[in-house]
Design a protein around this nucleic acid. Structure first.
Lengths: 342, 342
DNA sequence: CTGAAAGCGCTTACAG
DNA sequence: CTGAAAGCGCTTACAG
């Protein structure tokens, strides 16, 4: 069970074939006779053989190692991302190197380049906001390394993309609030300039328009995905005479900020004010009341990103890669309620 | 700036020395003349040379790669751990392989062993709860790999340890509540059987005893570090006639659960009830009111763990490693207040 | 203090 | 379908 290192030549000796043939079986190449293959596979099992990652990378064009870099303040997002990516990489027999980088550091390009060179990476996963930094994309392209971007803001055709449909998800959540009887609905946007922010806002407007409900300008607040931005915006809005009966925040942290603002304004949630979030991150279940929110399949997205990156690494020339669009789900919890009087 | 791979022999050629001597400089060995060293260092700079990680691992006893495995549901804990560990590893010129494992999986030992073999790890970092699993420790010991445990429950002398003083931290927080005028103070414990749980509870009792304050048995509630356990325990306690004016939870998630229980019981925090947490995790600042809590230097702990692991990897035989004890800090926020009437 | 040789465990051409 | 040879970029003994 617990054994120490056995090598390819051990396998070859036991299976009575050459090292080369043993290697063929390990790497699942096609041109091996069934009988030979079986013999080698037996040997692999008996010796509990695992190919060492280092010599593979030392010799070949492929290292069987991919990289995931991140610079995202949202802890729960990162952890889910990691778990999805690591599980998929393991399934596909690849190793994953994880590196936090600093997008505002002057050495970021050098850092990424060093990672590429030192570890001879086969490719890279780029979650937001790194996926939107042109200089990083350029570095990868000029190094000839494939990459997959997760939820990029810019939909150009550089590398592959894994996304959700932010527009439709936001529209669905807005429809849910409308169905609960709300007519005055506020919205808190994400960080300015990102596609996510734009698309979620557009989905909100689309649902309101379909329902022929007006959206006063002062009901659309500018946030930046952080708790504090929503707390400030919410305080301002809720102290006015005219205020919405429901607010939809572009992520869960900001929804938590709105709950705090409601408390400060002496309003009860969801009695006086319904609040909805986006992400279904850990925050959603540690605030009171717990958040009604849009579940984003972050783990799936990361796993999908790894899968299509590896497909591309393994691919022959005629391979035609495709982007992936994953679906979302509304999770109903205590922060929303039917509007009283309906 | 952005360059592709240069090798040790490129360096040797440029510096007009042998590959071996170039290697000596790269590896910071001592027996090189200053003049030779300078020439090689110049060449390294000019060619932007970075040693490839793969051949190092392929050939030598040392791979310059260490592993961090984790199985912890607390996202913010993991992310801080990763950042601290990755930064320190990079500083020391090591690479870090991160792997989520499943403690309840029957294949966990095999998984860890495979990781050890495939990546030829120099050593491993074990955060809780993995650091308390005897079979994992045994695997590492029999493989001859050094390891560092973070906050282990059991203080045996296997490997190195990095810890905080849970007892004194809990005692300090309890003293803070006492100083605020609270005399009836409740406590919610962590998961049964862990040393952390025991030590924090003991610290609480110690402070209460010093202040000659009674602790009724029904004021000490059993939790398990999760939100829900504290919500249930809190609901039960707060609906009784006799209830504490302050409760100290063994972590932030449970403190968040207590806030929810207080809301349900119609009590305001901190007006009717002060609540304190432990960890200063992300939860602490997204609940309302924000939590007064004990800041645990998770990032520092991870960095320290990596540092002493690498010291041990590099060490000669006469190296005498030592465990590390890091200090904590009380962070005061809105969830605690002076008891009214004082 | 410095170097020429052998080898780590694999993979990549090249033959048969 | 199978194998003997050369080599990846580095490090580890061994000499001088």
């Amino acid at each position: 069970m617990v054994q120490s290192k056995s090598t390819l030549s051990d396998i070859a000796k036991l299976a009575k074939v050459s090292i080369k043939t043993a290697s063929r079986v390990v790497r699942k190449e096609s041109k091996v006779s069934p009988k030979t293959r079986a013999a080698v596979e037996d040997a692999i099992k008996i010796l509990n053989y695992r190919p060492s990652v280092a010599p593979r990378a030392a010799v070949g064009s492929k290292s069987y190692v991919i990289g995931l870099v991140f610079d995202n303040p949202n802890a729960s997002y990162i952890v889910e991302l990691l778990q999805g990516a690591l599980e998929q990489a393991r399934k596909d027999g690849y190793h994953l190197i994880v590196e936090p980088v600093n997008l505002s550091s002057p050495s970021i390009i050098e850092d990424i380049n060093n990672l590429l060179i030192q570890s001879n990476l086969d490719g890279m996963i780029l979650p937001p906001p790194l996926c939107d930094e042109p200089s990083i994309l350029k570095t990868l392209i000029s190094a000839g390394k494939p990459f997959v971007r997760i939820s990029p803001s810019i939909s150009d055709e550089l590398g592959l993309r894994v996304e959700i449909n932010d527009h439709d998800a936001a529209k669905n959540m807005t429809n849910k609030l409308i169905t609960l009887g709300h007519k005055s609905i506020g919205f808190v946007t994400g960080r300015k300039g990102t596609a996510t922010t734009r698309r979620r806002l557009a989905g909100f407007y689309a649902a309101m328009k379909d329902a022929r409900l007006a959206v006063p300008n002062e009901f659309v607040l500018e946030g930046n995905f952080e708790y504090k931005s929503a707390l400030i915006a919410g305080e301002q809005l809720l102290n006015q005479e005219k205020r919405p009966t429901a607010i939809f925040a572009s992520n869960d942290e900001m929804a938590a900020g709105l709950i705090a603002a409601a408390h400060k304004a002496g309003l009860s949630v969801p009695g006086d004010l319904s609040i909805a979030g986006f992400d279904d991150s850990m925050v959603a279940t540690v605030v009171w009341p717990q958040l009604t929110t849009v579940r984003q399949p972050i783990k799936d997205m990361a796993a999908t990103a790894v899968r299509i990156l590896i497909e591309q690494c393994r691919a022959e020339k005629d391979y035609n890669p495709s982007n992936e669009l994953l679906s979302t789900e509304i999770i109903t919890r205590g922060s929303t309620a039917a509007k009283e009087g309906n």
